[in-house]
């Protein structure tokens, strides 16, 4: 059962990754050529505080986005999962996903229309006499986080819903009937069951946020560059693939560390949980 997917991944994931990572230690030549001489020059360049700063800035924005999505998405997932009527649940889920079915770039652009100095929000605020001068709502970190949250919130709600929905309501009821306070019931009964959903949701939101390119470009006005933009710049604009590969490597090392953390959380939840 494992074989088809693993072979698939070996060919189309492991081999390509190997290619990219090997490239990180070669020299970049003119016109995007790769000179196959081993070098550590790319590593030295990547350790420039400016580039390390971009990496941390990206991690910070992506974490903020993930946290906000979790806080916004959890009540929504609970609400949807606790509807008795399947039809209502389906309808609500569909409503959550529907915005996702318009293009990501278009939806990101919608926030420019809303937030720019001459945009809908500033127009409304000025019209109501709340502000005299338009506010600078766009082209900053807050706008980038807003755009990421808007883009990826459904990716948090779906796995949360899938996890919460499979909890038998009777279990929860039983726990409450047996005198467990709601909060205690949540902690001891529900949490272990939904942690896999939370972790999945966080992964789904964090990764595309961290590697995002269009949102910082459009809503950050290019002033708030993230690691994805930096990598993209190396590959597409300047075509220095070896240096870009080195930045990718740095990103991957960081993500590996987070992967270890995530599996640790999962393992703990399984020890606490029912199927320990």
């Amino acid at each position: 059962m494992l074989a088809p997917a693993l072979v698939w991944w070996a060919i189309f994931l492991a081999l390509p990754m190997g290619l990219v990572l090997a490239t990180a230690f070669f020299k970049g030549g003119a016109y995007g050529a790769i000179i196959y001489e081993p070098t550590l020059r790319n590593l030295e360049r990547a350790l420039d505080p400016l580039y390390v700063g971009v990496l941390w800035h990206s991690v910070w924005l992506a974490m903020l986005t993930t946290a906000i999505c979790l806080v916004l998405g959890y009540p929504a997932a609970v609400y949807i999962a606790t509807r008795a009527s399947a039809r209502t649940r389906t309808l609500l889920l569909v409503l959550v996903i529907l915005p996702f079915w318009t293009n990501f770039l278009i939806r990101t652009y919608a926030w420019i229309v809303l937030l720019n100095r001459e945009g809908v929000v500033n127009g409304a605020l000025e019209g109501l006499g709340i502000v005299d001068e338009p506010l600078s709502l766009l082209y900053n970190d807050a706008a980038v986080v807003l755009g990421l949250v808007y883009g990826y919130l459904p990716l948090m709600i779906l796995p949360l819903y899938a996890a919460i929905e499979r909890i038998n309501p009777e279990v929860l009821e039983a726990a409450t009937d047996l005198g467990a306070r709601p909060l205690r019931a949540l902690r001891t009964v529900m949490l272990p069951l939904i942690i896999p959903g939370i972790v999945a949701g966080c992964v789904f939101v964090f990764v595309p946020s961290l590697g995002n390119i269009p949102v910082p470009e459009l809503l950050g006005g290019g002033r708030s560059e993230m690691i994805g933009n930096l990598i993209n710049r190396q590959f597409l604009t300047t075509r220095d693939w070896p240096f870009g590969s080195m930045l990718v490597l740095a990103l991957m090392v960081l993500l590996m560390a987070l992967l270890v953390l995530q599996s640790f959380v999962l393992r703990r939840s399984r020890q606490v949980g029912v199927d320990g």
Binding site: P16, V20, V207, L259
Partner: peptide, 21 residues
């Protein structure tokens, strides 16, 4: 843990890797 790995690879990395492949 391995099955989550592809989710932890940013699109730009997957794209570049596959392109060269």
């Amino acid at each position: 843990n391995g099955i989550y790995l592809p989710l932890l690879i940013p699109d730009v990395v997957t794209g570049i890797g596959l392109l060269s492949f």
